[in-house]
Nucleic acid binder design. Structure first.
Lengths: 354, 354
DNA sequence: TTGTAGGCGTTATCAA
DNA sequence: TTGATAACGCCTACAA
């Protein structure tokens, strides 16, 4: 019997565990909740003495403000929603880091969702964020996303929306993007300047803007240097390591091999390079290779892989700053801005003729 | 004048833009808000017909449930807080991905904070999450964290807390960890079995549990194979690429060089390997190298780097599942569980004697 | 099956 | 400078 009563006491205590509210503080100090609220929020219309007293009491009672209540009352939650295709891609992880470095100090929470490159999941994510009444949304769209109805819904709900990296162009909203065209142009030009003339291109899905832009930059660079564009040297697919390896075989067996390859992604470039190395070709002497994204590993491959750095962390922090700016401004006064970040060509030995 | 009045209309409309509530739906259908609430929440105590009607009307009116209100009323926000040292480390990015893959389908939002390896920032993060009344917190502590007062505060607030990877041991709470001891033991044993006898160790800060465990595993493996432990072959520091390079020089110039090195981190292992290669040593013939973490690049270095995979994604998803389990259980009935995941030794050419 | 009523904890407005 | 009051939108006993 003894031990049961003891259990009972415990469960009683658990049930009763109530959070301290501003009313508790008010009661203790014999003032009203409004005063407590004002004191805690550093409202100027309050005497310094009560402010201090309230704060001290709050500490003593181990008071924790209830953000949910405050959110409801003020009609906003100081939260930014973020949707990315995948968190564990280095580029996106880096952008997230940059975003967080801005949002948290500014007093915003960051809710992160990943679409896993699925349009349906992205729509779900959007709905969740709208229901949570986030103060703004930053998105880099999934590989499947072609339409923007779900994004328009965000705007209809009067939530500032900002796109970055992968964007849908039909929307009149701010964005932070990489100058993919310029990056591809530079990389291709670099290959040409190194003396390569028969240059192939591994292209990502051209419906995704970034890959299309890189493709166009590639073509432009050829044209500007009077090198005929050859469609048979463009290979399209999802730019994975395996895709690169498979293409390596195809390219290796070509009657008339290209002397250089510009891949719109580093993983495919790597797969390609490894296959060719395994097949006995020397990089870059027999074939030069350049990638895109400056993935972490590109520095450590043998030879080092020439690629384009996208300043991911900076893209993230700029996107966050831009969004916070928009949140602070009346909708009708918002300007549509596009920040384009110029990528930097990182030249390594995979393309450098000795 | 014409255009001003038109502007005025717009601003009027903006001011008035009110969100649809369950009361609006109720009014339109001439029923009460409670009924609407029940219909929307699939409460069984309601007729199928009204349920459908309500849902249809909600759609028509473009109703968005107000999660903040619902949260306040129910006293919980369906939110999980996550604190990691850095989002843009591949290991953590991967764990986050795993966590998200569990929390979102379960209907929880994920608020992510990074401590940037700073204890002060970690304390701030904790406070924010407590104020937000998150339903649970998952944390991997910063490199500076030695005390657990801030974590105890979480428990005092009756918020389930779970540690993973880097943990503070003085707390009686569940955790998901890597078997660092075992991983290090395996890696070292592998080197010994390959015939190496004079094995050095690059150790991380030993105050951080994971590095200490790896250090102990290393020592144990030596002992079990009757190889004397030599303190002068243990090098401590923060395991960056540069640290590895610098140590490469030091080790290269040693009168009596080790014939193998086990590094508690991949980046330092890489720096070391590059320095030694540049100095003309052949890996693994002149010196074998093994790392820890299975960073993405380890597969692509030349030679490939032997390392330990930690199943980061799985660690994340297990941590999330475990936490959600605890959230569903009364505090007094919660069990303290430790899930230890055995790492997998990935043997590559950096340690494989031909 | 539906309605009534009250409150979650906070803050804004008005009044004193 | 402080107090009284109401409302943010939703959910849930309890009543009908």
């Amino acid at each position: 019997m003894e031990k049961f009563s003891h259990l009972y006491r415990f469960s009683q205590r658990d049930m009763k565990k109530k959070n301290i509210t501003i009313h508790d503080i008010a009661k203790k100090l014999d003032i009203t909740a409004s005063t407590v609220s004002r004191a805690l929020n550093n409202n100027p219309r309050i005497s310094a003495s009560t402010r201090e007293l309230v704060k001290k009491t709050a500490m003593d009672l181990n008071y924790q403000p209830n953000t949910m209540a405050s959110n409801l009352r003020r009609g906003k939650g100081n939260t930014i929603g973020l949707i990315v295709p995948r968190i564990n891609r280095f580029f996106f992880a880096d952008t997230i880091s940059g975003i967080e470095s801005v949002t948290t100090p500014a007093g915003f929470n960051l809710i992160i969702c990943q679409s896993n490159e699925s349009f349906a999941k992205e729509v779900e994510n959007i709905n969740t964020l709208i229901e949570n009444r986030v103060d703004g949304i930053i998105i880099s769209v999934s590989g499947e996303t072609r339409t923007s109805g779900h994004l328009k819904k965000v705007l209809q709900n009067n939530i500032p929306l900002l796109q970055y990296d992968r964007v849908i162009d039909e929307l009149d909203i701010s964005k932070v993007v990489n100058d993919n065209f310029e990056g591809a142009y530079q990389a291709t030009t670099h290959l040409i300047e190194q003396g390569y003339r028969k240059i192939a291109h591994l292209a990502g899905p051209l419906q995704i803007n970034i890959y299309n832009e890189r493709y166009e930059g590639f073509k432009k660079a050829l044209g500007d240097h009077k090198i005929p564009f050859r469609n048979d040297l463009v290979f399209k697919g999802v730019l994975t390591y395996q895709f690169g390896r498979d293409l390596g075989q195809k390219i290796f067996e070509l009657e008339e091999r290209p002397d250089a390859v510009f891949s719109a992604g580093d993983f495919a470039a790597l797969g390609l390079m490894e296959y060719l190395k395994d097949s006995g070709l020397r990089i870059p002497n027999d074939m030069a290779i350049a990638g895109f994204a400056n993935e972490q590993f590109t520095e450590y491959t043998d030879p080092g892989l020439t690629t384009c750095d996208q300043f991911a962390y900076e893209m993230g922090s700029m996107a966050a700053k831009l969004l916070l700016d928009e949140i602070g401004v009346e909708e009708k006064n918002r300007l549509t801005k596009t920040i384009t970040i110029k990528p930097k060509l990182i030249i390594r030995n995979s393309s450098l003729r000795k």
